[in-house]
Design a protein around this nucleic acid. Sequence first.
DNA 1: ATATTATTTAACTAATTGGTTAATTAACCA
DNA 2: TGGTTAATTAACCAATTAGTTAAATAATAT
Lengths: 120, 120
Amino acid sequence: MKDNLSSTFNALADPTRRAMLAKLSQGETNVSDLAKPFLKKMSLPAISKHLKVLEDAGLIIKTREAQWRPCRINGEALKDVSDWMEQYRFFWEESFDRLDEYLKTMTKNKKGKNKNETKK
Amino acid sequence: MKDNLSSTFNALADPTRRAMLAKLSQGETNVSDLAKPFLKKMSLPAISKHLKVLEDAGLIIKTREAQWRPCRINGEALKDVSDWMEQYRFFWEESFDRLDEYLKTMTKNKKGKNKNETKK
DNA sequence: ATATTATTTAACTAATTGGTTAATTAACCA
DNA sequence: TGGTTAATTAACCAATTAGTTAAATAATAT
């Protein structure tokens, strides 16, 4: 998982990590408070690892305050995702019927060797 | 990787798969044409697996046309990602200075640094 | 100093991923 | 029929991931 966008998407591909971001969207929160909802499901080291994935992906910034580690969302990685998404906006905003029509017709002549063109 | 959003993000967390989506954004393409740019790097079965990940995540739809499998982008999974992203728009659209200020102040009294503050 | 609280690191394990080659399925073509 | 093309499946392997428990680090509080 080398490039930035890949590690960001990878970090988002887990419901525990997304729930942590949801909590952080309400404001700075330290590790043990972030952990609280999950401690029945998993241990604190597991939480710590999830936070490291988020931090390495640039989605959060962890700071120090006495023995606590307040975390907050870092907008930049989210911006990278948003920017990447923009090029596909067409695909979810168009009506699906028109989209299908568009995709089926715009590439008619690239199909290759089928002379009978068995399209539906 | 159970829920839809997780498998969608997971599918996007790979540069080969994102490159395939980029190609598909120009129109329907069958498997061997999609594979072409990658055949120096990996085998056809590897490509086939990547496409299965995209398909299982709902990001593409694979159809049949004679011995070819034309693939096209499915907007719905991308819409799910876009909808999820919306709740975080604030974090990448605000100026970073103001964002930091906001996060630092809105939760001042939840820090626990203040001595008599034994939370909940 | 010592104890307590917050968090991370180490060492380990099971499950998953991403690739391989070889075999198989499926449709077309002559 | 047999041969070719397109794509998938099977069997396997190495690397990574996601969790565990136990130990270590670090700051605060007594």
